[in-house]
Design a protein around this nucleic acid. Structure first.
Length: 291
DNA sequence: AAGATCGCCTGCAGGC
DNA sequence: TGCCTGCAGGCGATCT
């Protein structure tokens, strides 16, 4: 599932395969692909055709490609979105949603998305927090590996919140880029229970958690992300291999590498949380976690 | 108004 | 064997 490390791996691939190239044409398939683009498919095509891609940028789980028009193609991979650089004679993927052809010839760039939670739009850039960011991305917080990420601000926001720490980690307006997998991994590293109240955390807890988030995201980027199946691959088609380094996610019943206790899976927010029952004790008197 | 939940989508695993 | 249910889960919309 694409979280920050997977999206960053895709961004590097787009830098290699798309930046500097001029879009000759684009084909869009399916009603959901550009559902967030106000002008619809025709307007999308008109805004990108003939434009040169200047760079490849990312904040949290959003990607964008600034164009020489001053606008940018914004992409979100959702649950299963992929960008693939392929030769034109490669058979269309079953869930091909968009095809970009370039003035310099092959390879073409395809956006493929099985579950259609992802999508594309063209948007204006605005100056959000110093650096230019698409209007449609400006509502999310900086991600923790951004040099401008504000640890003091994040700690203050947690003190004002009345919710559990994992809910806060998943809230993209507080800290962006963290999803279910890396939230569980970071909480394990920081020895925190997912339902620990944000307003009960001491500053040292927050620092330990942010260090853990930073470390696990950077380690996953070095590994090219986490690939459980063919739904996540890099732009060149390669899988990531961070799944071998996961300590709790998807490891129900296996021994904790620190203490040996069996990892537990528990229902949480209509999905699952994985934790070590010994290293990550349930907070006393906590509110029952909604499921 | 913040916080929690819902609906969107497809493919696959597991149970009977 | 084949149908059914559950699960994966990010995010915008919608509740309370």
């Amino acid at each position: 599932m694409p979280e920050l490390p997977e999206v960053e791996t895709v961004r590097v691939g787009l830098q290699r395969w798309a930046v500097g190239r001029t879009i000759r044409s684009v084909d869009l398939h399916g009603p959901r692909t550009v559902r967030r683009h106000a002008g619809g498919p025709g307007d999308f095509a008109a805004r990108v055709t003939g434009r040169r891609i200047e760079s490849a940028a990312r904040r949290g789980k959003y990607l964008w490609l600034p164009l020489d028009s001053g606008e940018a193609v914004v992409a979100h991979l959702g649950m299963s979105g992929q960008f693939l650089a392929v030769a034109p004679d490669v058979a269309d993927q079953p869930h091909l949603r968009a095809r970009f052809r370039f003035a310099d010839g092959p390879p073409e760039l395809r956006f493929v998305d099985q579950r259609t939670f992802g999508g594309l739009l063209v948007d204006e850039l605005t100056s959000g927090g110093g650096s230019p960011v698409p209007v449609s991305v400006a509502h999310i917080a900086l991600d923790p590996i951004d040099p401008a990420f504000d640890r003091n601000g994040f700690a203050a926001a947690l003190r004002r919140r009345h919710t559990g720490i994992k809910r806060a980690l998943l809230d993209q307006t507080l800290i962006s880029g963290v999803g279910n997998i890396y939230a569980d991994e970071a909480l394990w590293r920081a020895r925190l229970h997912y339902d620990r109240a944000t307003d009960s955390l001491r500053r040292a807890d927050v620092e330990r958690l942010l260090d853990a988030v930073d470390e696990v995201l950077r380690a996953a980027i070095r590994a090219g992300g986490t690939s459980f199946d063919a739904l996540y691959v890099a732009v060149n088609g390669e899988s990531g291999w961070f799944d071998r380094s996961l300590e709790v996610y998807g490891r129900e019943g296996e021994p904790c590498s620190r203490c040996g206790a069996a990892i537990r899976r528990e229902p949480f927010m209509n999905r699952s949380s994985f934790r070590c029952p010994r290293c990550q004790r349930a907070p006393a008197g906590r509110r029952p976690s909604a499921r």
